[in-house]
Design a binder for these strands. Structure first.
Lengths: 364, 364
DNA sequence: CTGAAAGCGCTTACAG
DNA sequence: CTGAAAGCGCTTACAG
């Protein structure tokens, strides 16, 4: 390509595009076709695709024009083979809430939109003996570009070690600071739980209980300690007999609520560690012939769609799961591109006041 | 490899395994490593991997032993490049119910377990102008092994045409017979709806209404017509003013129920086309100050987890979504392997009796 | 700034 | 029943 004045470059581009248009019908183009039409080597085309700065602007322009004209997109399998790294982003999760899972998936897909990356699902069961082995096989075989790890998978340090060994990028979503800004998204669960506490205190409740999530989830600890902190602001405490441990599931929430209802001192308000358990608590309250919120106020956490579908609608604490998923996907790409943020990206929950929490009953 | 007696073959295998074990530490093996250790060509190794019958049993045994010893698995990206077909199975869906989606995903993953296939998510919005274009781009770029199409995507004949053109295998899940046994899974929605009708008739209801799903879903038609058929068995009909159309969503179900409650003749029982709409109906009933099931009985369809979490628990019709997903995945693999079933695989729903439907109120 | 050669780990004709 | 050659569509050193 000699050094031509602009008008001649335009003519050159136009010529190439004409040739490209003719080619178009033949089928899917490859990097070789682009190279031939542009009269450059395929390596140069590869450089343009990979945004290498080592290409003369005029060459870049010509190649890009042809790529656009042909609607060419590089073959992900071929790139993967050459790069020893696929274009798959794996979501590794064990959260039992379908709502959480679906929202997270949608968010990641939002973040991956308009890219060549595909979302691959890897549900796991951390209790399963094969969990570890199967995940490693997946990584070795499919060489995922990166992994997104929501709680509680994000808290598995052994897993993180394995990913480091294999050079797999990852983003952890967690309620505590577990990693560098390039590798994690932080949620301030404790702050959300404190808001729940303030809300219940403001309504006048004194006998307040908590249905806690499983010990194996850091979020369960964060939500509890934040709740305790919020109560303390109003001089209230959370005595041991006002804590019922459960497993983030509907059934465990129902049983926990029953324990609280039939305890010596029945609470007038209950903060459940997630909406699933709050939903179980609803049923326990109804079975006992009590009313929500007249007899017992209930507050949840997550704001999953079920919250708005209950009667009365559940007052709960919302984390923007979908936005978090999108942020995680984008962080993964930024990290790989060498553009990590300076500080940890974090999300603060906010209480969503609906109808399930009101003033406590008058009589003791 | 000369023709040795069995004992010598065992010695030969043992030798190879010793060499393989030593190799093991070096890192991931390739087809070339296997070939070298087995002293055969890599093509022969490829034949063993692909279950070609054109391999001498003794050679096959030797190669398989080494593969097992090394824990070798062929590189999916390399195979994809050579085969012009990836190992991704795409789930293309537009069902608004998260429960349905998660169950379907789990089922497909069940069916894909222990294979090299990965599940890739492709949620779509059929109303979106880009729907078509983006799906085609995905297919052209990623060359998915196959697609699984639940309703209503399964009903898009234009999409099917495109898949045929591109040679992409698919399995449709639908409530009507849309394709050959190799390419579809059938659900007998009408039969399930008829069961709902029989249940309500047996309880003594006469004024029975239906909240119908969207016109764009064949399942909505099937459920309605099956319901009408079930009513007819008891000499009952479904007059036009007893049908409220909605969109398979919570809000649309709530509004549809309100229309039915405030109509001239209020029904004593309502069959909702899915659980989401039934959940909306619950709220409408409560808002009107009425009780379930004392004033109005409600029956849903799908048996999503929310059904058991409501109070009172929802009587509904269950389709085994997860099992259907697993069957769809297996059918896709069987189809590709050239083993299609003789008849269409089908699933029949069954009514799950809980507490939301009872005898109608005594007074008119 | 650009290109020719070699390679990523497989498979598909083609021979024998 | 088995193998040597060529190719799938890209990228990574290595030269210049």
């Amino acid at each position: 390509m000699t050094d031509l004045p602009d008008s001649e470059q335009e003519a050159e581009v136009a010529d190439a595009l004409r040739e490209a248009a003719a080619f178009r019908l033949t089928g899917r183009a490859t990097i070789n076709d682009i190279a031939r039409i542009a009269k450059v080597s395929k390596k140069t085309v590869s450089r343009v695709i990979n945004e290498s700065p080592l290409v003369k602007p005029r060459t870049r322009h010509l190649v890009k024009s042809i790529i656009a004209e042909l609607g060419f997109t590089p073959d992900p399998q071929a790139r993967a083979l050459a790069l020893r790294r696929s274009f798959l982003v794996g979501l590794v999760y064990d959260n039992p809430s379908p709502q959480y899972v679906v929202n997270m998936q949608r968010g990641i897909l939002d973040g991956l939109e308009e890219t060549d990356f595909q979302l691959v699902l890897r549900p796991v069961n951390r209790g399963d003996a094969n969990y570890w082995h199967r995940l490693r096989t997946f990584i070795q075989q499919h060489k995922p570009f990166g992994l997104i790890l929501p709680p509680s998978v994000s808290e598995d340090e052994e897993l993180i070690d394995m990913l480091r060994e294999h050079g797999v990028d990852y983003v952890r979503i967690a309620s505590v600071e577990l990693d560098t800004p390039a590798r994690m998204i932080r949620t301030h669960d404790a702050e959300g739980a404190a808001q729940a506490a303030r809300h219940l205190c403001a309504l006048g409740h004194v006998d307040i209980a908590h249905i806690q999530g499983p010990e194996t989830f850091r979020s369960a600890h964060e939500r509890r300690s934040g709740f305790v902190r919020g109560l303390a602001e109003s001089g209230r405490t959370l005595p041991a007999d006002m804590i019922a441990e459960a497993g983030y599931t509907f059934d465990s929430g129902l049983q926990a609520m029953e324990r609280l209802i039939y305890a010596k001192r029945r609470p007038t308000a209950v903060f459940a560690g997630n909406d699933e358990m709050a939903t179980g608590a609803y049923v326990a309250v109804r079975k006992a012939g009590l009313r929500i919120p007249e007899d017992i106020s209930i507050v949840g956490f997550d704001d999953t769609p079920i919250a708005g579908r209950l009667w009365p609608a559940l007052t709960t604490v919302r984390l923007p799961i979908r936005e978090m998923g999108a942020a995680a996907a984008k962080l993964l790409l930024d990290q790989a591109a060498g553009n990590p943020p300076a500080e940890i990206i974090s999300f603060s929950p906010e209480i969503v006041v609906r109808e399930s929490a009101a003033a406590p009953p008058k009589a003791g």
